[in-house]
Amino acid sequence: MGCVLSGLKWPRTPSKDHVTPEPLLPTLGLTPQQQQLLIETWELLKQDIAKVGVIVFIRLFETHPECKDVFFLFHDVDDLKLSKELRAHGLRVLSVVEKSVARIENVTRLEKFLFELGRSHYRYKAPPRYYQYVGIEFLSAIRPILKEKWTPEVEEVWKVLFTYICAVMKAGYQEEENKHNEKTPTMKRLEKSQATAM
């Protein structure tokens, strides 16, 4: 009896020729009709984009208070509804959604955009475990806004898009993290000393 993973024929010890493969990116796989559904519902949502952004982040901080540690700007804000910073950040996040929908028919452009966004989130110290929470709160925020336009098909297509966004951003984050971790301790010390000397 061996372990379940032994059937996958992974090498027990990496050989000197062994190269760690790059993470596989997911495929989006939306039909033209599903793409159109995203575009149409986004057109309706754009009218309330600032409101949606604020709702998403207020709900995010209520359901996952630990997220405030990542979004340090909002850590000590008493009334989030009145925060100009929260409104601005919500608009930035929803601009990512807007850019994703605008690139929905060109998956290569969309993938590149999201991958780079994930890499930049490593520099912002915003780890991937929080990305899905934003997607969940986005769906909760748009449901009442879309009213009778909210259907199981609409819900499914937005879930697919956010799952894809999270997965590609995570791959970008991990690539940036791996690059950072590959630096030798001497290189890290040198960079640190150069930064403090400036």
Rank of each mutant, 00 (worst) to 15 (best):
P144W: 00
I145K: 00
I142Q: 01
G90H: 10
P127T: 11
R103W: 04
T108M: 05
Y130P: 01
L86P: 06
I104N: 08
R119L: 01
P128K: 10
L117E: 04
G118I: 09
P144I: 01
L146C: 08
P127I: 06
K149C: 08
V154R: 07
V107S: 03
Q132S: 02
E148P: 04
V154H: 01
I136V: 13
R123S: 05
A141V: 04
V107I: 14
V96P: 01
K149L: 06
R103H: 13
K149H: 12
R109L: 13
V101L: 12
S120D: 14
E111A: 09
P127A: 07
A141T: 11
I142L: 06
E105P: 00
V134C: 02
R87A: 15
E105G: 03
E98G: 01
A102N: 11
W150R: 05
S100A: 15
Y133W: 15
Y131V: 01
K99Y: 05
T151D: 13
V97F: 14
F113A: 07
R119N: 05
Q132H: 06
V134D: 00
R123C: 03
K125M: 13
A126N: 14
L86Y: 15
F138E: 00
R103Q: 07
L139W: 11
L117F: 07
E156S: 05
I145S: 03
E105K: 15
Y122W: 08
K149V: 06
V134P: 00
V96E: 04
E155F: 02
E98A: 10
V134L: 07
S95T: 14
A88N: 12
Q132K: 07
S140M: 01
V101A: 03
A141P: 04
A102F: 12
G135M: 12
I104M: 12
L146M: 09
V154W: 04
F138V: 00
Y122D: 02
Y124L: 15
P127D: 06
R129K: 11
R119K: 14
S120H: 11
A126K: 09
A102M: 10
L110H: 10
G118H: 04
N106K: 09
P127E: 09
E153Y: 09
F138G: 00
R87E: 14
Q132M: 04
K149I: 03
I136F: 02
H89S: 06
